[in-house]
Design a protein around this nucleic acid. Sequence first.
DNA 1: GATACTTACTATCCAAATTATAGTAAGTGT
DNA 2: ACACTTACTATAATTTGGATAGTAAGTATC
Lengths: 121, 121
Amino acid sequence: MNEEPDFDPYHPDCPSRQLVDRVGDRWTILVTGVLSDGPARYGEIAASVGGISPKMLSHTLKALERDGLVTRKAYAEVPPRVVYELTDLGRTLRPVLLSIEAWARENMPAVLSARKQYDAS
Amino acid sequence: MNEEPDFDPYHPDCPSRQLVDRVGDRWTILVTGVLSDGPARYGEIAASVGGISPKMLSHTLKALERDGLVTRKAYAEVPPRVVYELTDLGRTLRPVLLSIEAWARENMPAVLSARKQYDAS
DNA sequence: GATACTTACTATCCAAATTATAGTAAGTGT
DNA sequence: ACACTTACTATAATTTGGATAGTAAGTATC
């Protein structure tokens, strides 16, 4: 008789929709992918994720931190050092996002040939 | 001695980056989620995925079709009828995207409380 | 026989998000 | 005194996305 929360991402006003938006986001996927290999500094993440602007990197990290998926540790040194790391909750996301990455790698040839065929007509 | 293609989504110019962008996209996730339950008409998808505009729905479907993930069958009737369906390739995407959805549903409470804590400071 | 109804879209305009790029802080090394 | 380092923030320009209206075309209605 206990009612479940029943989150439904198909409803635009459900908070889980925002979560799908966040998790299903190019930068989230790639940044989290980097952090899956262990803690990393801001500059290291920037270097690993090709093409991300500093603005989007800090936005993405801030959002991940707010959602409890990543921790931020700043060391009061000069030059500054800031280390980001996945939380336990963030680590539950790993297999999900890595499977996206793996899917993209594996099925690239099939998609590429589908595109060629489509574009030919 | 055979060289593998070695697609790397972390490189901005690799085509697999575009695939991650596509798969990691709110509308792709939700539309594919609907089509996982079986073929559906344009209007049915629009009704299931709350908040999607006709423009984004047709854009998303066209991109999925181009990538060989979805088929489009139009019946020359009045009023028109168009049925979309996952291809075999598209079906390989199902478990991946459904796991995103599942993750979002399951971890919503944890994220919500993390946010509350973060916003309090 | 003019009008309304249906469905699957396109076209258009405007707001919002993203990119590129430059700038800031602050202590150490030359 | 000046450059160098790192982790950002600020600003303007471009791109993307959203809201809404319109189109085609045959059938049913008045």
